[in-house]
C-alpha cells in the first residue's frame, strides 16, 4: 500500500464524514452525522406533544414511552407524537396508544380515555417550581376499550 495509501484513505474518510455538513440545510444521517443534537438554542419556551391518560375522575395519568410509541426510548416517543400531529394523524395515533394501554400494565388499569395534546411550558419554571403549562392544545380524544 506504501506511504500514500493510508494518507489517501484517511483523506477519503474525513471527506465522507464532513460531506453531510456541507448541504444547506445540513442533512443528518447515520452513521454519517451532522451532530445537530445540542446545537440549536430552543429558547425558554418548550412545546411538547404527547398523549396522556384520564381516569374515571378525569385525573391525568402519564404514559410511559413504551405505551406511547412501542419502545422504551423517550425521545422516540416525543418524535412519534409530534409527527403524528403534524401529519394530521392524531386520531389514528390516539387509537394506537389506547390499544397499547388496553393491553398494558396494571398501573394504567384505571385509564379510560386518551388525549393527544400539545403542551407549551416555560420549561425551567415548570421543572423548578411546578409552574402550570402556558397553554394546552387538544388534538384528539379516544376511549380505552378493554375486552
Amino acid at each position: 500500500m506504501g506511504r500514500w495509501g493510508p494518507r489517501l484513505i484517511t483523506l477519503g474518510v474525513v471527506i465522507a464524514l464532513v460531506y453531510p455538513t456541507l448541504g444547506d440545510p445540513p442533512r443528518d444521517g447515520f452513521p454519517l452525522s451532522t451532530y445537530p443534537m445540542f446545537a440549536v438554542d430552543r429558547g425558554p419556551v418548550t412545546r411538547v406533544t404527547t398523549a396522556v391518560g384520564r381516569d374515571a375522575d378525569s385525573d391525568r395519568v402519564l404514559l410511559s414511552p413504551h405505551l406511547l410509541a412501542g419502545t422504551d426510548e423517550p425521545i422516540m416517543a416525543v418524535r412519534t407524537a409530534r409527527t403524528a400531529v403534524s401529519d394530521g394523524r392524531s386520531a389514528e395515533w390516539c387509537r394506537e396508544v389506547a390499544d397499547r394501554v388496553a393491553r398494558g400494565p396494571a398501573r394504567v388499569d384505571g385509564v379510560e380515555t386518551i388525549e393527544v395534546v400539545t403542551e407549551t411550558h416555560e420549561a425551567a419554571a415548570t421543572l423548578t417550581s411546578d409552574a402550570p403549562p402556558v397553554s394546552v392544545a387538544l388534538h384528539a380524544t379516544c376511549p380505552v376499550s378493554r375486552r
Binding site: L62, L63, S64, P74, A77, A123, T126, L127
Partner: peptide, 13 residues
C-alpha cells in the same frame, strides 16, 4: 437541559 428534562417527564420518563 430544561427542554430535554421536561419532554422526558411529559412522556412518563
Amino acid at each position: 437541559v430544561a427542554h430535554d428534562a421536561l419532554r422526558k417527564e411529559l412522556v412518563g420518563d
